[in-house]
Computed example of a mutant assay.
Amino acid sequence: MQATDTTWSQTEKQIARTAFNNAYQRELDYLVKTVREQSSSLTEIDDVWRLHDFLSARRHEIDGKYDYRYSVLVFVLASLVREGWLQLSELEGLAADKLAKITALTRM
């Protein structure tokens, strides 16, 4: 992923931060729901280790995905839209060039 030198206005920063935080919370809520469902069927120690491995992998994935550096934020937001954690409508108010880049990247 190539970083960009895009500048962000104060308003755009607020819009992006809100959208970013909402997507992050949605993904965490889904993870908690999934863990609750999986943990209710634990019967053996191997089940516990599988849950542990699942959580470790998800933590690594989530920690790597949610990068709020402005130089990569367009790519991060596009990825969140593509994965369904964010809707393009939540990014209304960003500059047209940023929205166009995000929209194009969601199709890749």
Rank of each mutant, 00 (worst) to 15 (best):
D46I: 03
A78M: 06
W49K: 14
T18P: 00
L94T: 01
L42N: 02
D5S: 14
I45Y: 13
S79R: 11
Y30S: 12
S40R: 12
A78N: 02
L42E: 01
H52Y: 15
V74E: 04
Y68H: 14
L77C: 04
T43S: 15
R59W: 00
T11S: 13
G93H: 02
Q38I: 07
A57Q: 07
F20K: 01
Y70D: 14
Y70A: 12
R59I: 04
D47P: 04
W49N: 14
I15Q: 02
F20P: 01
E27Y: 00
M1D: 13
L42S: 05
S89E: 06
L55V: 06
L86A: 09
W49C: 11
T11N: 12
L77Q: 01
A100H: 06
H52A: 13
K65N: 06
T18M: 02
A95R: 02
L42P: 05
R59T: 06
L42F: 07
T18D: 05
A104C: 10
R50Q: 14
Y30C: 07
E61W: 03
E37D: 11
M1T: 11
L73G: 00
F75E: 14
F75I: 09
G84D: 07
K65F: 03
D97E: 14
A23Y: 00
I45C: 09
A96S: 15
T11R: 11
R69Y: 03
L28I: 07
D53C: 04
K65D: 06
T7V: 13
T11Q: 13
V35Y: 02
D67Q: 01
D63S: 11
Y24F: 13
A104W: 13
H60G: 09
